[in-house]
Write a protein that binds this DNA or RNA. Structure first.
Lengths: 224, 224
DNA sequence: ATAATGCTTCGGCTAGCATCGAAGTATGAA
DNA sequence: TTCATACTTCGATGCTAGCCGAAGCATTAT
């Protein structure tokens, strides 16, 4: 029975975390639920078996998201019932809205700005994006060399692709990973357009006023 | 959490039984769930505490029904998810459709015909029906005396009202109980319009061809 | 290669909860 | 009144399932 899956508090916490439309790693879900990774692993296997969530492998991470909008729908209705019965479960949105805007995803930029950057690159035909595959175009190489002093040879790596689509959990869309994604983030840091938050463990990336302007000039949103 | 309530198999069976829109007694729900009455009592208390079901006392019975259309909605969606995951839960409708049409409710007529009778009586202004209260009108007294030879003094009883609204679980609406309800059923039997099913424990009431005609003449449905 | 990280599987422990028997209340019948 | 039925509460038992420690892949970093 599906309800039994949702009934367990640990699993309910996981699902509630996923309800925000983000995709989270197994470890992140473990701490959301307040259990150890091995316990979480068992729960996640059950949720997956019940068709409530779906995994997406990404390097040595395993991102989980809700399997379906229908699942989210049922969960919300369920939460609505609980609220009416007085068993309110507040669980307000994630802590930092800054995280949604810009953050480190391993070594590359994620968040709204990361998604926006990939969108812009596709629109400018710097890359071609089909499904999971992303290819750097010749125009893209020129663009990178001219504006950011990133040369193709800087991007070669024995076992890592230049471009890769990476699921962004705050925007629920893909942003750019791979050696190019890492190189871009590195350059942004070197140029002092952006800097990682000094707080230990924080994944927030803060853009400077000037940095934001330069970034927008290269990768501005569609409407701009 | 609400989902935990639905998660237990016994409770899930109870809710599924109630999902058909009927109201069932605690004992009936116990056998639906396949547990003893005392176990069922505990489950029902929890479901009531969670706001999923609501009791309606009726003599020494306790009828339970889903608290809200919303609850039914969520349960159906939940079942839909389960079906998609392959964990189909068939649970086809109740055994006898005859039960839905006409049956004994203690000593009076219930089922579609019971509901239809009360509707017709209201329409003919034989009774006034406001909320739970039903009052026999003067016209009603005349009608009963003329067509069924039921006199007002036959309906007096030390501790029982003449008219009472009784929740009909198959139609999910009220039918007529009280001494009048009992007297009507008694008269139908005497006139051989209807007879209780001979099977032991059966609550089915079978109408004869002629009985059905006479009944329809007095208490026909709105469209007729 | 070696080390480190992310995640899973295995095994044993424990808490919680469903379950039932028995006894207690409430309602109605005789 | 006394008896029967419907339902609940209490008390004790037993089983499920969540939990963690330790160990086992898998992937990536150095």
């Amino acid at each position: 029975m599906v309800a039994a899956l949702v009934g367990d508090p640990a699993r309910a916490n996981m699902l509630t975390a996923l309800l925000s439309g983000r995709a989270l790693t197994a470890t992140e879900l473990a701490q959301e639920a307040g259990v150890t990774p091995q316990t979480a692993s068992s729960h996640l296997a059950k949720l997956e078996g019940g068709g409530l969530i779906e995994p997406e492998k990404q390097g040595r991470h395993r991102y989980y998201r809700l399997a379906d909008p229908d699942v989210a729908d049922v969960l919300e209705k369920l939460a609505g019932l609980a609220a009416r019965a007085g068993h309110m479960r507040v669980r307000t949105g994630p802590k930092e809205p800054e995280l949604r805007r810009a953050r480190i995803c391993y070594d590359h930029l994620a968040g709204d700005l990361g998604v926006q950057m990939l969108d812009s690159m596709v629109r400018q035909k710097l890359v071609r994006h089909r499904k999971q595959e992303i290819i750097l175009t010749e125009e893209g190489e020129h663009f990178l060399a001219r504006h950011l002093r990133i040369s193709p040879e800087m991007l070669t790596h024995p076992r890592r692709p230049v471009c890769k689509a990476c699921l962004d959990w705050s925007a629920r869309r893909h942003h750019l990973a791979g050696t190019l994604g890492a190189a871009l983030m590195k350059r942004f840091t070197e140029l002092k357009w952006a800097a990682r938050d000094t707080t230990a463990g924080s994944r927030v990336v803060n853009f400077s006023r000037a940095g934001e302007k330069h970034f927008a000039a290269l990768f501005g949103a569609a409407g701009d």
